[in-house]
Nucleic acid binder design. Structure first.
Length: 758
DNA sequence: CTTATCACTTAGAATCTGATAT
DNA sequence: ATATCAGATTCTAAGTGATAAG
């Protein structure tokens, strides 16, 4: 990496050629509170300015002034956009059609210069990440699944022959067997039980997702049943009978009463506003203050109800179970291309109060009841169409085989579309999953090249390139998510890599005994906090300092970057590469490495499983998969501790006895007392072992307190790695994957041999 | 372009279930 | 038999990213 591009003074890149303008305009609106002058001031950079480290002084020398009315800038997004547009239009007309020029103006307001003077070379150690290896030679498996939507064959010799077109068969294979495993009629079940190995067949090449699809439509939420008369709602201390719609919404609130949500201001405000809409006009005029509403009787009623449900007799419970099973059998499956497949979510989401994660501006809003006329059905033209419930109609029935969903509706909180889709064990999900890991494996082959490239790009003279390169480094090294932009005010304020703001990182040239430490502290997906202090290479550190210059805390760190730009770049580096592939790749490769490191052939099975879990945990930590400690966590820890204490006193008692026995033996020297000593000794040993085990369990549980293994296991770890590991170390697959997981990963379990290499 | 829409994956919490302890 | 608990399952929110629309 010679890196000498433009050493010295390459300035201006024609950064102008680029799209450098785009992003910051949106981003600017975040500084809602700054004074205009401040804002102005910081916007004063021209793209042609050269920055060097010492540069701050140059800051003002730019020739470009803000040419539009930017001083009037409002903080509102739309307005902002308008201003920008106006400005651009103006520019355009004044400069003619040179795109370059017009961009140039964009820069004027940019917090960061487009061009950067390159820094002196100096540092640069080698890339430290352990992940960076040469790709291995052994990749024959890769061919098995090409990325291209082209037809892919898996010419894995042994399997290839088996592959043929099942499509021609007329008969449906029931590859999912009915619950009762002893479905008596032996003849038919044989065939039924045979699991369909879709992974041995060819995939379609034309972008269609299926050729035949038949299902019975979704199951709707049960209608609302009004409360028994004795369960009262009180307003201002007086009982008040509510109309059914108002009552229903009230029950939603009542059911959440002991959740802390209901104490939050926003929640209450949203709820109250939405509740009012359901009230009759009399109710509206009477109920004017949520604080005067007493839902406690309703709440008690539901608690009693669920208690009663628990107390039901066996027979009653059995009956309910059977009914559920019947519904599952009827609605829980569809027929897709000759195979009966399980549907993932065949029940429509019931109405209720919206619970966002984190600090969500819409928490407490009413999620409305979905009716047949809200539902779009998707199925084959030549299938038996699902029929809407008595007296109702579907919104639409369409036959789009370019998508995988069976039904959809638009949800009223965010206006997004919800879908009914197949279970992860289905062919359609499995193929995609498999493909995902194949893409990650292709990344493995070229990740060195990509890393070399982005390191080189840290020295680029173009700001946008540097930002892109540093962001990619974070995504690669820290497994950060891409970070799409979100609409402000619609969702909780969370970020990913590209949407990081200045306030989310802190730079420490020295911290304790480390140099160039970056501290990350932000809320990511689901408002899970990401907190990490990590030493980075000097060049990265310097770049970050540069990116931070002249910015406010609420400004974007990467003001010239967004996920579209990043992904477009990645696409050029490798077919099918996007930011999320790095997460998959790094997760899987980490598991593989950790397993290699931790597994030991003389370990017992439980010890091996512990190693597996530890490897899994390493990945979960990398991906920041956290969970709230269960409310019962402390208690269950305590229980365990009690057990440990008991064991401990048992142990000392046993030891005492041993001592006594020894003394006894010393005195009597007879055989009997000798045997007694031996027995006691054994007892002590046994108890010691038990104690050890308990203590191990305790540490394990403690370690796992806030770490969730499931997400990575289900979504990031190539299952073939785990399958191969099980085969290699003779660990039954059931120890690693439960039934559902085995169904989802059936393809991997079937195809991976013990020498599988990710 | 730039934004909006759509489809689909990924996510933690809530709820259910069934095994085990009492 | 009942209570307890942990793991399994369900639920649905919240991401990613491609592409259509303006």
């Amino acid at each position: 990496m010679s890196g000498d591009h433009g050493q010295g003074d390459c300035q201006v890149n024609s950064g102008s050629k680029g799209n450098d303008t785009q992003k910051h305009k949106d981003k600017e609106q975040r500084h809602k509170d700054h004074k205009k002058d401040k804002e102005r001031e910081k916007l004063k950079h021209s793209n042609s300015e050269h920055k060097d480290h010492s540069e701050k002084k140059h800051r003002d020398k730019e020739k470009l002034k803000q040419n539009d009315g930017s001083s009037e800038k409002h903080r509102e997004k739309h307005k902002e956009k308008d201003v920008d547009r106006r400005r651009e239009a103006k520019i355009k007309s004044s400069h003619g059609d040179k795109p370059k020029k017009e961009k140039e103006n964009g820069y004027a307001r940019d917090p960061s210069p487009a061009a950067i003077k390159s820094e002196p070379e100096e540092d640069d150690g080698f890339y430290p990440s352990p992940q960076r290896h040469k790709a291995t030679k052994r990749d024959h498996d890769d061919k098995e699944f090409e990325y291209k939507p082209k037809k892919v064959k898996t010419e894995h010799d042994k399997k290839a022959k088996k592959r043929k077109h099942e499509y021609e068969e007329d008969e449906v294979c029931f590859d999912v067997k009915p619950k009762k495993k002893t479905k008596v009629g032996g003849k038919k079940s044989l065939k039924e039980e045979e699991k369909w190995k879709w992974w041995e067949e060819e995939r379609s090449t034309d972008g269609s997702k299926w050729r035949f699809l038949e299902h019975k439509g979704p199951v709707f939420a049960p209608l609302y049943e009004t409360l028994p008369g004795k369960v009262k709602f009180y307003y201002d201390g007086k009982p008040m009978k509510l109309s059914a719609p108002a009552e229903e919404v009230a029950t939603f609130f009542a059911k959440m009463l002991d959740h802390e949500y209901t104490t939050k201001d926003i929640f209450r405000k949203n709820f109250y506003k939405n509740w009012k809409k359901e009230m009759t006009s009399e109710e509206k005029s009477k109920i004017t203050d949520l604080n005067k509403c007493d839902f406690s009787e309703m709440s008690e009623h539901f608690k009693a109800q669920s208690e009663a449900r628990k107390q039901m007799s066996k027979g009653e419970k059995q009956k309910i179970k059977e009914e559920n099973e019947r519904i599952l059998q009827e609605y829980g499956f569809c027929i897709m291309d000759n195979h009966k497949e399980r549907i993932g979510n065949f029940r429509i989401e019931p109405p209720g109060l919206f619970r966002g994660r984190g600090d969500h501006p819409k928490m407490g809003m009413l999620k409305r009841r979905i009716r047949p006329q809200d539902i779009i059905i998707n199925c084959s033209k030549d299938s038996k169409h699902p029929k809407p419930p008595q007296g109702s109609k579907w919104k639409e029935v369409r036959h789009d085989n370019k998508v995988t969903w069976l039904a959809s509706w638009t949800e009223n909180i965010q206006g997004s579309i919800k879908y009914i889709m197949l279970n992860p064990s289905s062919r359609i999900k499995g193929e995609k999953d498999w493909q995902k890991y194949e893409t990650a494996r292709r990344l493995k082959k070229c990740v060195d090249r990509i890393r070399t490239q982005y390191r080189e790009d840290w020295k680029s003279k173009e700001m946008r390139i540097r930002q892109r390169a540093v962001a990619l480094y974070f995504i690669d090294k820290l497994a950060l998510r891409a970070g799409n932009e979100k609409e402000e005010g619609e969702t909780a304020d969370t970020v990913g890599c590209c949407s990081l703001r200045v306030e989310h990182i802190k730079l420490y040239p020295k911290l304790d005994d480390q140099e160039y430490v970056v501290e990350f502290d932000f809320l990511g997906k689901d408002s899970i906090r990401y907190y990490n202090k990590i030493p980075v290479e000097k060049r990265v550190f310097k770049n970050l300092q540069l990116f931070l210059e002249n910015k406010q805390p609420e400004d974007d760190l990467f003001d010239r970057l967004n996920t579209a730009i990043l992904n477009k770049h990645l696409q050029e580096l490798m077919d099918g590469l996007t930011a999320k592939v790095f997460r998959t790749y790094n997760a899987s490769i980490t598991l593989q490495q950790q397993l290699k490191e931790l597994s030991c052939s003389d370990d017992s099975i439980p010890a091996k499983i512990l190693s597996y879990n530890r490897a899994n945990r390493a990945v979960a930590i990398l991906c920041n998969h956290q969970r709230a400690p269960a409310k019962t966590f402390e208690k269950s820890m305590q229980n365990l501790q009690t057990k440990i204490d008991e064991k401990q006193s048992q142990l000392s008692a046993a030891r005492k006895q041993l001592k006594a026995a020894k003394a006894d033996h010393k005195a009597s020297r007879d055989d009997k007392s000798k045997r007694a000593v031996e027995a006691k000794r054994k007892a002590v040993q046994r108890i010691e072992e038990q104690l050890m085990k308990l203590q191990l369990q305790a540490t394990d549980r403690e370690e796992n307190k806030q770490i969730a293994l499931g997400t990575s296991k289900l979504n990031y770890l190539d299952p073939r790695i785990s399958v191969a590991w099980c085969k290699k170390w003779d660990v039954p697959i059931e120890k690693i994957y439960n039934k559902t997981q085995r169904e989802k990963f059936a393809w991997a379990i079937d195809m991976a041999e013990n020498d599988y290499e990710f």
